[in-house]
């Protein structure tokens, strides 16, 4: 199912973005207007403490790959399980799965590689029961590299899939 969604044309070496069934969920809401009544009596320390005390879950996970490989490593299973324990039910939150590759090989083959890597992560998340409609899959190939390098450089940082959500 997910394979069908991301099997777009790979002749072009441009990044490919697939929106998977987002519907009304992809709307961005402007922040709610702030009340413009008279300023409250000063109590800055309490306000600061309240904001600082709010715990925040991480909002990105990175998966790394061996050169030329689209196979998840054993340790990535733990990362997928972590994602499973972050994703709340019923929330139209979008998870973005963005695959990259290093610059060894042709841009076309690297785009294909980055797409297959993103697909591997997507499969792992769907296998954990996260609805497939909650993903954007982005195959970036060698465009927008995490670490800029020249051609033919096998940089480990670039052989990866970034999973982010909002």
């Amino acid at each position: 199912m997910s394979r069908r969604m991301i099997s777009l044309s790979m002749r072009q070496a441009m990044p490919i973005l697939v929106l998977a069934g987002l519907g009304a969920c992809a709307q961005t809401q402007p922040p709610a207007p702030v009340a413009t009544s008279a300023p409250p009596p000063p109590s800055p320390p309490a306000v600061v403490a309240d904001t600082a005390a709010k715990p925040k879950a991480p909002d990105s996970l990175d998966f790394y790959f061996a050169p030329g490989s689209t196979k998840l490593r054993a340790e990535d299973v733990a990362l997928l399980d972590k994602a499973s324990r972050l994703y709340r039910d019923g929330n139209p939150i979008v998870m973005v799965v963005a695959g990259s590759s290093d610059t060894v090989g042709s841009p076309e083959s690297n785009l294909k590689l980055s797409q297959a890597r993103a697909d591997a992560v997507l499969q792992g998340l769907v296998a954990r029961g996260i609805p497939v409609g909650r993903f954007q899959v982005l195959a970036k190939g060698v465009t927008d590299l995490p670490v800029q390098t020249g051609e033919g450089v096998a940089n480990q940082e670039n052989r990866r899939v970034d999973l982010t959500w909002r």
């Binding site: 715990p55 925040k56 879950a57 324990r85 709340r88």
Partner: peptide
Amino acid sequence: APAEFNVAVMLDSHRGVPH
């Protein structure tokens, strides 16, 4: 049940509440 699951996830991932 859906709310029970989300309560669990937030406690598990320290979102909005301490872990």
